[in-house]
């Protein structure tokens, strides 16, 4: 019977799909749909003027740029951390492993205040750096430091299980067949990690774009220089300009969505190449 042939192995598709759609709508779609609904209470001219204001444009560039740099830093060093945790056993490994999750759990404002205290010109790290002419707190560097902090667990936690799944036997086999270390890394290890690595990067990047709590403390909030887009949304709200605030948010949302879509596309492409 054709009907039976279309049956899934596991029952309950209708129910789970229904719950999925309902849940996604309630949690993601409906809240996000209110954004354009509120933004479009303003005229097209006003909308365009809001989002093309030099200060707003500067904040987009800063938010996206700093998030990208921070995600890239995490992509490099986070993978090393993930590799170390997955492949080696050393005293205190469990403690280090638990530390990775702290940025998830810590209220971001606390992270911001701690990092600012540390990196301010009078702080433990800030003072020696300042003597060498490097200012961290209240500059763009400070923003990146905060974003690296909150983004780290995303890269480590995405890569770690994949590295644990990698069978060292394959690397040994490649070596025994005469491949040099770099060749093993390049042709055997990296292709297998690439999809997860991109996911980790995308998660860290997405998280950093919208980050507010930790950044406002360390950024110094100087217009045109260290104002992030979420701060401008807050200043609009402070003037009871809900439409203006949502206009900025809507553009942020579209930019992030386009970027994440591109990264997902890249990831799918690499996965096809790996699995053949």
């Amino acid at each position: 019977m054709t009907h039976a042939a279309r049956r899934r192995v596991l029952p309950g598709f209708g129910l789970t799909m229904g719950i999925t759609v309902l849940y996604l709508s309630l949690v993601v779609l409906i809240p996000l749909a209110t954004l354009p609904a509120t933004a479009f209470t303003m005229s097209w001219e006003a909308f365009r003027a809001t989002i093309s204001d030099p200060r707003v444009v500067a904040s987009y560039k800063l938010s996206l740029g700093a998030a990208f740099v921070a995600a890239a830093i995490n992509a490099v060093f986070g993978s090393l951390v993930a590799w170390t945790l997955a492949r080696y056993s050393f005293p205190g490994r469990r403690i280090v492993d638990a530390l990775i999750d702290l940025p998830f759990a810590l209220p971001t404002a606390v992270a911001g205040i701690v990092l600012t205290t540390l990196y301010a010109p009078s702080g433990w790290l800030g003072a020696p750096l300042a003597r060498h002419g490097i200012d961290v707190a209240f500059t763009r560097t400070g923003i990146i430091v905060a974003l690296v902090f909150i983004g780290l667990p995303f890269v480590v936690r995405t890569l770690q299980p994949v590295i644990e799944e990698l069978d060292p036997d394959v690397e040994e086999a490649a070596t025994s067949l005469g491949a040099r270390r770099m060749a093993v890394l390049w042709h055997v290890v990296l292709p297998n990690l690439l999809p997860a690595w991109l996911t980790g990067f995308a998660l860290a990047f997405a998280r950093a774009i919208g980050e507010y709590g930790s950044v406002v403390f360390i950024s110094g909030n100087m217009p045109m220089r260290t104002e992030i887009a979420p701060l401008l949304i807050m200043t609009k709200l402070e003037q009871y300009d809900y439409a203006g605030a949502t206009a900025i948010a809507l553009v942020m949302l579209l930019l992030s969505f386009a970027l994440l879509l591109a990264i997902n596309g890249l990831q799918a492409w690499t996965r096809r190449r790996v699995t053949g």
Partner: peptide, 20 residues
């Protein structure tokens, strides 16, 4: 003004604790 904190308490912390 080297740092524009988002709230008055933040400014006080900047001045008193960070000695800026």
């Amino acid at each position: 003004v080297p740092v524009l904190d988002s709230g008055a308490r933040g400014s006080t912390i900047t001045f008193v604790q960070r000695r800026i």
